[in-house]
Design a protein around this nucleic acid. Structure first.
Length: 759
DNA sequence: GGGGGCTATGGGGGG
DNA sequence: CATAGCCCCC
């Protein structure tokens, strides 16, 4: 068995061994938080608790999975029986068992945000309101934030503050839309993402059949990771689970207020403060030693975060040595930014022997990935883009899934609307609209209304045929497994034929995706898994559908391709890389223009920047572009104020730099901004290679042919002499002396370097 | 009812 | 720039 306690520092050890009573762990970035959590859980089990009595709520399913793997190194197979997952996935699992107690079928559907928006639009239209005034995103976020703050539709309609806000925003009907939305979801047997929390809250709060005691007894230990990103609703549920007369209050929350970056979906640091009040005899442990990054990076992070007023006092420190300074890259355009970063990635790989998967490019918005993809492709560097449109959000996948949803739950209104006329079966908009109107008039589901709707014969018969087909699938579902059924659906619904008819590259890709989905279902069916209590896991279609609804982009298979990571800063939370490029550091982009008008908004952007830079272990590069193509036109940008919050002695500029216009905030004081400028000027001399060879006259020689003693040319470093060559074949590294540049002696990995032999 | 082409509009982060 | 929604014609 691993002697895990010996791998911990004193404070970590206390956080691990204080298993009884309430514990707050304030964990700075890179402070070994995951290690503490995993060992703490292992310790709890070693002290005799059953693994299924331990509930761990994490931010992604991947984090939960990795944690289980690490715990199994200490406690073996028992780790498989832990309850661990995201709030959403754990609660969804519980709700499936208890659904009837909150008035839902156990095969309830989970509405994703597209479903939610579509339903809201239908309600807005049904009320005869102008969808431009009643912007669906605004309405959705009003409702979502109400649920996240435990304000029911009824409570909302009586909440003077909410009503006033809506009146001010000229959308007074939100209260009624909310009411209808809840009713329609319930009618459809559907829960949105917020409902997975909200309905569980209602379940525990109303406590039918003493269900609350059941879960209070079940979970003897509760741990919450990334506590700073939980909302009031999640905290309320936590309290319902943990607080009761005679409770040992074995609850441990781990978080870092400085890394709270999800306020936009209701997360509040208030939870940390409340936690300190709600649990007397709370023990707090602060992890401040950073084991991840070198000092320039850690200190820069500290400097940045001190610009936020409200925070738990804490300063992270590192003993990893000062390390490399932070490189600053200024590009004229977004495209140049992409090119230069790709070039630096090539150079870093050569010089420091970095592998692709040790490198990440982090940006504020997913739309920024494109240029980096383009230039990395040109450099023949494998990369992987996270975020953006995930597999399950593709149209063809959603279409097939909508059929499956309808089979499992025919009341599912959004699935019904999606496929009632896909593939085409002669049911147009008019018929569907009539059906929807009648359904809401009769207060019935679309599915039930089909039988009674007075529609033209053609449409009516098509709908009845459609219904017959789904019923046929439902019959099949009692004997076929999920995979057999899904394959049948793909063929009989006409989806496969439809896609086969499309011979374009994209069309063929869609067919491949359908097959990939079927493979995924097959894998789901064939993999035996157990519930924490040791029962064989249910392999029904309903279980499958719920599991994929809650997958995030992070949950993709581990990277086998050795690719450079491209992702948003939000997705990078909890990850670390040897080399990190934080790009697009411009005012109005990072910080985002959406957040710039309030102090809270700016503070959150700053925390996001803090998260971004603390992902780096050894190499951190910050870049910005003077102009950027956005929404169809070129925008001139000032460099981000965040860059100026790092003192110049941590910074070093890379490549040629031009005099900057300075940052956005005039009040930032002369020291910092002039410091940055001075720094730029100094580095123009020191790090820009003086020799640049015309690409036309440059013809790199095969890397195998480079030998000790040769005179070679390098595109940027100029002429140099090969002093020695070490390593074998693909990993051969040459030490070359380039005259006429600073730090003339370079180690170059021949596999990647382009060198032309002179003599 | 279906399809194509045009215009208007939004524009972030994600479970 | 991307996409949703609209209009028009078959």
């Amino acid at each position: 068995m691993v002697n895990y306690l010996s791998e911990l520092n004193e404070i970590q050890k206390k956080a691990v061994t204080t298993t009884e009573g309430p514990v707050l762990v304030v964990a700075g970035p890179g402070s070994g938080k995951t290690r503490v959590l995993t060992y703490r859980i292992a310790h709890i089990i070693n002290q005799g608790a059953a693994p299924w009595e331990v509930l761990t709520l994490t931010f992604t399913n991947k984090a939960a999975k990795e944690m289980k793997e690490r715990i199994s190194l200490v406690v073996g197979d028992r780790a498989n029986s832990l309850w661990a997952g995201t709030f959403h996935s754990v609660f969804s699992r519980i709700l499936r068992v208890e659904a009837d107690k909150v008035g839902y079928p156990s095969s309830f559907t989970i509405y994703d945000s597209d479903d939610t928006k579509s339903l809201l639009n239908s309600i807005i239209k049904g009320k005869g309101l102008d969808p431009k005034v009643y912007n669906v995103n605004t309405v959705r976020s009003r409702i979502s934030s109400a649920k996240s703050n435990i304000i029911s539709a009824t409570a909302y309609a009586n909440d003077q503050d909410k009503l006033m806000e809506d009146r001010m925003a000229k959308i007074p009907e939100v209260a009624d839309i909310y009411k209808q939305y809840v009713a329609r979801c319930k009618k459809a047997g559907a829960m949105d993402f917020d409902d997975l929390l909200y309905q569980l809250f209602l379940l525990l709060d109303r406590n039918p059949d003493n269900v609350r005691e059941k879960y209070q007894q079940k979970f003897k230990y509760v741990l919450v990771d990334e506590f700073q990103d939980t909302n009031s609703l999640q905290y309320a549920i936590l309290k319902l689970l943990v607080c009761y007369p005679g409770s040992p209050n074995n609850v441990c929350v781990v978080g870092d207020d400085a890394q709270s970056i999800y306020a936009f979906r209701g997360a509040t640091i208030k939870n940390i403060l409340d936690f300190q009040n709600d649990f007397k005899n709370l023990q707090t442990f602060k992890l401040e030693q950073n084991y991840r990054s070198t000092e320039h990076i850690v200190q820069a992070a500290n400097e940045v975060i001190t610009h936020n007023q409200k925070q738990i006092q804490k300063k992270i420190w590192s003993d990893k040595g000062s390390g490399q300074k932070i490189q600053v890259v200024q590009a004229m355009t977004d495209s140049e930014e992409g090119r230069r970063i790709a070039g630096m990635i090539v150079e870093q790989k050569t010089r420091y022997h970095l592998k692709n998967n040790e490198i990440a490019v982090l940006y504020r918005t997913n739309a920024q990935s494109r240029v980096f993809e383009e230039y990395l492709r040109r450099q023949n560097i494998l990369y992987r883009v996270y975020g953006g449109l995930s597999f399950y959000q593709r149209k063809e996948i959603k279409d097939l899934i909508a059929y499956l949803r309808l089979i499992v739950n025919p009341m599912d209104e959004e699935a019904f609307k999606r496929v009632i006329n896909y593939p085409k079966r002669g049911i147009g908009k008019t018929s569907t609209e009539k059906l929807t109107a009648l359904a809401s008039q009769l207060d019935k589901s679309l599915w039930e209304t089909v039988d009674v709707a007075p529609l033209p014969n053609k449409a009516r018969n098509s709908m009845l045929d459609f219904k017959k087909m789904i019923k046929h699938f439902q019959t099949k579902s009692t004997k076929d497994n999920a995979y057999e059924l899904a394959s049948l659906v793909a063929r009989q619904s006409g989806i496969i034929d439809q896609l086969k008819g499309d011979t374009t590259v994209e069309g063929m890709g869609r067919l491949d995706n359908i097959n990939a989905l079927l493979d995924g279902i097959s894998e789901f069916v064939e993999t035996d898994t157990l519930t924490p209590e040791g029962q064989p896991e249910d392999k029904s279609l309903a279980t499958y559908l719920q599991s994929i609804s809650l997958l995030t982009d992070q949950d993709k298979e581990e990277d086998v391709n050795n690719s450079v990571t491209l992702m948003s800063v939000h997705s990078a939370k909890g990850l670390e890389f040897k080399s990190v490029f934080v790009v697009g550091l411009e005012e109005k982009l990072f910080p985002s223009f959406m957040s710039m008008d309030s102090q809270e908004g700016l503070d959150e952007e700053r925390r996001l920047f803090y998260v971004a830079i603390t992902r780096a272990e050894q190499f951190l590069t910050l870049s910005f572009a003077r102009s950027r193509y956005r929404y169809g036109k070129t925008q001139d940008n000032r460099m981000s104020r965040f860059l100026m919050e790092i003192s110049p002695n941590h910074l070093e500029s890379a490549g040629s730099l031009h005099r900057t216009k300075g940052g956005g905030n005039q009040g930032s004081g002369g020291r910092v901004s002039s410091g940055v400028k001075g720094n730029f000027a100094r580095n123009r001399r020191s790090s820009k290679p003086s020799v640049v060879i015309d690409p036309k006259n440059f013809h790199p020689s095969p890397s195998e042919s480079i030998q000790t003693g040769m005179k070679v040319l390098h595109m940027r470093f100029g002429e140099g002499k090969v002093l020695s060559v070490d390593g074998a074949e693909a990993s051969r590294i040459a030490t070359i002396f380039f005259k006429g540049i600073d730090n003339p002696q370079k180690k170059i990995m021949l596999k990647f370097a382009k060198l032309q032999i002179v003599t």
